[in-house]
Amino acid sequence: MRGLRRRTTVQVSRVALPVHAHNSYGHALLPPLMRAGTYAVDPEPFGPPWRSWNEAEAEARKLFAPVGLLSYGPAGTIVVAPGDTRGIVLIPERCDGYCYGVDGRDGPNLACARCGLEVGTRIDDCSRWQEVRFLPGSVRFEPSEEPPADDWTVEGIPPVDPSGVWSPYWEAAVGDALARLLAVSGGGTIAVKDGLVADVFGPALALLSSGPRCREPVLAGPGLPDAGDIALVPRHPVTGRPWPRSGATDVVPLAAEVWTWLAFGHDPVTATVSGVMPAGVLRDDPLPKHPGGPFLPARDVFLHTLARLPAVRRPWLRTIYDRVRTDGFV
């Protein structure tokens, strides 16, 4: 990317905006939102000014449930990892934040190092993913080789962090998919078999009424058979589109890195060994990590997604939305 004929990033390729972009997490410094060498475009308004919820204005923006304050900042900001930027500097008088860093509350806080023109916003405060958002009119793109959109090969992310807590990437991905799963449920019960799918989706599905209709989500996608009812399919990491060939009645997309682990994840207990142990022996070390508490989907992501689905206007689903907005997943 270039701004005013000056390079503002290293060469980057476009990918879908990560689902955890809409989630704040913990009370610590988080890693970058975007992987090195990638960028995404956020179609929604970002940053100040902020205005109170207005139902007529919100529905025109395809918001179907209250979301508190609405951003009236620029739509189409271009999101990159801070380490991929070049030739930009902070605007000192706009470096306020909540705790550890800056959060863009005063508007764009980055400028061109040569001419001083405002170009974007740096965010690196606690509980926020580190990112730089370029104003849509401040940069232009130079042609580069894009990743193939038909390649579904994605490395899975383990569900448990090395520290022993549930992965925030899983919490965000499941929060997004859960909102979509509820929207296609019709308000009836949804059954999930034992296993990791049940661990991450099962507790939250108790929000549904015990109606007579019982449906079951099934993993479907590259390397798996087609599903017949509700298919949990991967969302392509480049295009953001769901797997198109599930054959299911309803399709619920899930972040590809999480879907891949659910479908094909490995178990360290059954990893083959080498060295002094006899051939064919399976090792029992290291033991798989188990978190200390139940899985809770990311509340922020769940509400963000559900508020943008027309189904939330149904009374039973609006009741769930309001309950989670007030009390979280309890």
Rank of each mutant, 00 (worst) to 15 (best):
R235S: 06
A172S: 14
M34D: 04
P278T: 03
A220C: 10
P315R: 15
C95A: 09
P148L: 03
P294G: 08
P310N: 13
D125T: 08
V154A: 09
P294F: 01
S209V: 02
D194S: 12
P148I: 02
P136F: 04
H304T: 06
D96R: 05
P108V: 10
V165N: 15
V154E: 15
D199E: 11
E57H: 15
A255P: 01
D194T: 11
P92G: 15
L181A: 10
E145W: 13
A263N: 02
R94F: 11
R299G: 12
A206D: 06
P268M: 01
F46A: 03
T272S: 13
T270K: 14
E257M: 09
E155L: 04
L70C: 13
D284T: 15
V79N: 06
F201V: 11
D106K: 11
G37M: 02
L309I: 07
R35N: 10
E145F: 08
P18R: 04
D84S: 02
W50P: 07
V12H: 00
A231E: 02
P49R: 03
V330T: 01
E216S: 10
A40K: 03
T189I: 09
L196Q: 13
G97W: 09
E155A: 08
G228W: 11
A40S: 07
V251I: 14
L4N: 15
R133A: 08
D285I: 09
W243H: 09
L303V: 08
P49E: 04
L135Y: 08
G265P: 09
V119W: 00
G228K: 14
G73V: 14
A255Q: 11
L110W: 12
V238K: 01
G223W: 14
G101S: 03
W53H: 12
L219S: 15
W166K: 00
S24D: 02
A179E: 12
M277Q: 13
A21V: 12
A16L: 06
Y72Q: 11
E131R: 11
D150Y: 01
Q130P: 13
A172K: 04
Y100I: 09
R51D: 09
T305N: 05
M1K: 06
R114K: 07
R308M: 06
V174S: 10
A172C: 15
A227W: 07
T121S: 07
G76F: 09
A231R: 06
V197M: 14
T260R: 11
L205R: 02
G47H: 04
L219T: 13
D176L: 01
T9K: 07
D322L: 12
A21M: 01
E44N: 03
E216C: 13
W152E: 09
Y39W: 05
T319E: 14
